[in-house]
Simulated scan of single mutants.
Amino acid sequence: GIDSLGVETPDDKTLVFTLEKPCVYFLDLLRLPVYTPSCVKYAKKTDSGWDKDPSTSVSNGPFYLAEYVPEQYFVLKKNPKYWNAESVKLDQITYRFFDDQQSMANAYETKEVDVAPALQSSVMKLYEGKEDLVITDTIATRYIYPNLNVKPLDDVRVRKALNLAIDRKELCKAIGEDTEPAVNLVAKYMKDKSTGKYFVDEAAPPFEENLEEAKQLLTDAGYPGGKGFPTLTYNYPSLEMDSDTAQVIQEQLKKNLNISIKLNAQELQVNYTERRAGSFDLCRMNWTADFADPYTYLSMLLSNSTYNCSGIADEKYDALVAQSDQETDPVKRGKLMHEAEQLAVGGEFYIIPLFSMKSCNLIRPRITGITQNPATGALEYRHADIQ
């Protein structure tokens, strides 16, 4: 009940949380949608549509919902009751809905919109050298889960061989300029709050690609030159970038290790359901940070995580992450998190990291002050202004 929740409101403007144990990233967690306050008078049940109706969608943010037309657009207006209202320069923002990235890029071209975020990488060539093109960091990692309950993926030598045999530079060249090779689980562009540097740059990479070593590992595991290696199936969503990725990986593993991978493109929801059920050999994963702390990544591989659907059960890893979770000294905590990542990604090879992404955005040069959300890298319009 509410009494045992550990939350108090001593006055109208104060909220006090009492935690069971230390949690250094607690304030970062509060930006998750589940913590967004909603008005109990209207927000009685999910899917009732209260949030899309301007008369019941109560806001305490910099903007409030003024109009909502399903599948077309919605309008936000400046909230005069926002605590920091004087810093908000825009009077209103209209968000338009588009079926795909191309229609959005076209709408920018024809001046129907002033900002077009997260476009396809071809935009980089079209707008090269122009002020409109703004490249931002996406705080996300695309990787593959090898299922530990499927032979021979239960053998760490095989998992390591797959990791070492993939040429990520070639892969990124083939799938788009908005991708960059990654050998970490924690997203390449996630910052370490205590140092301001990228977290992954503060430790050695978990592993380095090495084709000769990969071939040797496969031989040691009993598959010299790929002989006798079973055909594994790779499940991935039938989205353009994932299909391109799958084909490159299939080609590389055939050429480099002489092993066959069967490709299985699935509808996004089917891919998700089968992954959750652990019904796959190899499965595509993508994780965009929920909050601005490496824990959002490391927690994925914990034995009891709902996202761990590949059979990882590593007591040593769990203990390192649990320890880091309660460590309040940022330097010691950073060390523990790096140790956990090195163990999972460079010691046991529980995942096959592939790449991180950049986001191509088009923004009219007269618009200033657009910032990025520190957790996901998404564009943030709170301080935007039009010159």
Rank of each mutant, 00 (worst) to 15 (best):
residue 206 P to F: 02
residue 238 S to T: 09
residue 237 P to H: 10
residue 224 P to E: 10
residue 246 A to N: 06
residue 221 A to V: 04
residue 225 G to D: 13
residue 249 I to Q: 08
residue 201 D to H: 08
residue 197 K to C: 08
residue 222 G to K: 13
residue 228 G to D: 12
residue 247 Q to I: 12
residue 225 G to N: 12
residue 197 K to L: 15
residue 200 V to Y: 00
residue 201 D to Y: 03
residue 242 D to K: 09
residue 218 L to G: 12
residue 202 E to L: 12
residue 225 G to W: 06
residue 200 V to R: 05
residue 202 E to N: 07
residue 233 T to V: 15
residue 207 F to W: 03
residue 231 T to H: 08
residue 228 G to L: 08
residue 245 T to N: 10
residue 248 V to L: 14
residue 223 Y to P: 04
residue 219 T to F: 04
residue 200 V to F: 00
residue 233 T to I: 06
residue 229 F to R: 15
residue 197 K to R: 15
residue 227 K to F: 03
residue 248 V to W: 08
residue 212 E to I: 03
residue 234 Y to N: 01
residue 235 N to M: 10
residue 222 G to Y: 13
residue 236 Y to I: 09
residue 213 E to P: 05
residue 222 G to L: 13
residue 215 K to A: 14
residue 216 Q to G: 00
residue 231 T to V: 15
residue 199 F to G: 07
residue 236 Y to W: 08
residue 213 E to I: 07
residue 240 E to C: 01
residue 204 A to L: 04
residue 211 L to E: 10
residue 248 V to E: 13
residue 219 T to S: 09
residue 222 G to M: 09
residue 209 E to G: 03
residue 220 D to Q: 11
residue 205 P to K: 01
residue 237 P to C: 12
residue 199 F to V: 01
residue 223 Y to R: 13
residue 246 A to M: 02
residue 239 L to E: 12
residue 243 S to F: 03
residue 210 N to F: 01
residue 232 L to P: 10
residue 207 F to M: 05
residue 231 T to S: 12
residue 205 P to Q: 06
residue 243 S to T: 15
residue 213 E to F: 02
residue 245 T to G: 11
residue 220 D to H: 07
residue 220 D to I: 12
residue 244 D to T: 05
residue 241 M to K: 11
residue 246 A to V: 01
residue 208 E to A: 13
residue 207 F to C: 00
residue 217 L to G: 00
residue 242 D to P: 07
residue 202 E to S: 10
residue 250 Q to E: 14
residue 248 V to P: 05
residue 200 V to K: 00
residue 216 Q to L: 01
residue 232 L to S: 09
residue 208 E to Q: 09
residue 200 V to A: 05
residue 222 G to E: 11
residue 198 Y to D: 07
residue 226 G to K: 01
residue 209 E to C: 00
residue 208 E to T: 09
residue 198 Y to T: 14
residue 227 K to N: 05
residue 206 P to V: 00
residue 211 L to W: 07
residue 238 S to Y: 02
residue 247 Q to T: 14
residue 197 K to A: 14
residue 231 T to W: 02
residue 244 D to K: 15
residue 244 D to W: 07
residue 209 E to W: 02
residue 227 K to I: 09
residue 250 Q to I: 02
residue 220 D to Y: 11
